[in-house]
Design a protein around this nucleic acid. Structure first.
Lengths: 215, 215, 215, 215
DNA sequence: AATGAATGAGTGTTCATTCAT
DNA sequence: TATGAATGAACACTCATTCAT
């Protein structure tokens, strides 16, 4: 049997290799930053020869961009999956639901790969401003929008007061991630689940105090 | 007679030159990032020869650290000066005061040099983790603490409800800076004063809804 | 049935492909020089895949040699065809005949492909000295010899004075091509037909002054 | 005593090093051609480190140009010195004088460095067309002009017939160098002095037959 | 016989750093 | 003390060449 017949695709090997390179690239870039990372090391990490990297991805800069957007897509998908679960609750326990969603968002947000992604964008945005369109455009913005959608539904259902849903979403996210950022020393230290719970509870508490309908 | 005895300090020329180098270094690092910046260009920007940079600051890495901490000190001082003005107001207009302080904090936070500083810390923290001690230690942490002090006083004065002042400070800052970060695309776009006002008002509004005493 | 049996030769497709590769190679080598030319581009120009080039021609160096000798053969044939027309004229107009032959030799000599060929030989002769055997051996030398033959006949016929026919041929060619070389800036600029006519007339004039029988 | 006080110039070391590099560069380029030559080898030949080459000459291409023009200047100076000696002879022996000048021009022309220079210009002119302005402009053209000046004087003195002096110069040079070029296989083989004498005599003979006044 | 994919070797160029002045 | 000059190490990128299909 010839190797790599794991899938039915005609040239699965090529795709696998490309993805292996992108994944290795993200790992190395995350470890060393863009400029310090050298293509040779990325190639070694991916188990291919250096020119193969160039065959597939043209350029160090392009390699960087592709690796970043791939990582951003992964990260976004996880966050959206969490937000998906924020529906209008049947029983009265909105607080528990928000805490659950908030906690899981923080877990995704604090995931090493997410932290590395944010750090890299921040780091290299000055010479590659299109990273923002590729990463923030598919990332934070769409997260805020998705969350705003759910906030709007909660308002319509009378579970939150009438307010700009985008602003509510922004603030909910800010209350979650802001405090965590300082505590994890910008993502260089892991936060314990207890810390995350604590921050989540504080965030949800403040959020509900500000957004619970008065009636 | 030695040159440049224009001031009373024992060797003022030396100090001036050192500061010129540090300032030039921050400018260049901010423009190009650590790895892309080259000492030659920093030296040119400072108006000295390359070896002079080494005479004064031993190392590229050390030069970076010194330039960063100097910039961090400047930035921190500005923020603390703003927080200084957050006293317990005599009249009833706490909201106006918070909005004023918040707005000015955002102005400092959004200053190009502050943005560059944050970006650089984020960018290079992986290989220079002591940057955080030097920058965040003297920066965000002390800002949060200083703000927490004032929050505590407002609570004691009955102007805010009883609550953990550190948490209140963290959340106040988060409500301010979180939404601004996404809107300015991580500091790569300037925010208009109107945007800043709007975010400030929303932040203060939510903050007061959550922290006004119930009585 | 194998494809491309349009001709009677046993495997005409193969020959066609080989010639396509050689022609493409000469074009690319002429455009970029040996070292700067890359096999990939030659393959693209020939409309085949890179390994096909290797299948047919083993090596870059060999590809070069084959392309060069093919081009040299083409060029030589043209020159010889011109010299063929230099017969002993029946009427008295030797001058007109020489001018005609000279002009047509210059046209062949100044043809872009001839210029490129000369440039390439000159350029790469240091590492591929056998190019000279392949190109000059079949080129200039045989041209001189062929021309010397006709000079000898003209002497025998009493139309030129008694002299070493090889020397006469050499000098005739030198008087033609020498002045043209400088004027066309070594073949990088085209010479107008007027310029060529002028040079030819001067060459023939000098030649006839020197080689007309005294009687 | 400190080293390199051989001359009075303030920074003679720098100039020496630059010239050493240029000379080494010409040697290596002549041996290997532009593309095959590698800067590392040039540096080794010059006895300096590779970056020193870049400090002095910026670029491989620029290094090439500078080395070529320097060599062209040397070569031109030698030829002009020879032409300088072609004055109107007092006695009747114009033939001997022309043979002497012609022979010495051929020696210069056939000098290994001159041959290498011509080969390199021919080789690389396609990507560096300004080489022609730098080399032919200062080279062949000025040689032709200088020789034409002397031809004009000889005509005025009645030693040559009235004729376009530029054309006479061009043809004289062509009659000398043309035959030599083929015989030395484009400068890859040395010509013996006997061969050179022979060619010179033939050239001068033909030239005088064509340009001696009829009277 | 022809190709897509992969590779090892090698090049130009940059830059932090040191030394002699 | 400040500098011009020099260097060693490193890196992005290219290309001729080969193998499996």
């Amino acid at each position: 049997m010839s190797p790599a017949k794991t899938s039915s695709a005609p040239s699965r090997g090529r795709i696998d290799k490309r993805e292996a390179i992108l994944s290795a690239a993200f790992t190395v870039f995350a470890r060393q930053g863009y400029a310090q990372a050298c293509v040779k090391e990325i190639a070694k990490e991916a188990g291919v020869a250096k020119p193969t990297v160039y065959n597939h991805l043209t350029d160090k800069a392009n390699l960087f961009r592709e690796a970043m957007t791939a990582a951003a897509d992964r990260s976004l998908a996880e966050s959206l999956a969490v937000i998906e679960t924020l529906t209008v609750p049947r029983d009265d326990d909105l607080r528990a639901l928000l805490e659950d969603v908030g906690f899981r968002l923080l877990k995704v947000h604090g995931d090493p790969r997410s932290c590395a992604l944010r750090r890299l964008v921040y780091a290299e945005v000055s010479w590659a401003p299109d990273l923002l369109d590729a990463v923030q455009g598919r990332g934070s913005d769409r997260i805020t929008e998705a969350l705003a959608d759910r906030m709007a539904r909660l308002s319509l259902a009378g579970r939150l007061r009438q307010a700009d849903p985008v602003q509510a979403a922004e603030q909910f996210l800010a209350l979650l991630t802001g405090p965590v950022a300082t505590r994890t020393r910008m993502g260089t230290r892991d936060a314990t689940d207890e810390e995350l719970r604590e921050v989540t509870q504080a965030a949800v508490d403040t959020f509900l105090r500000a957004y619970t309908p008065v009636a």
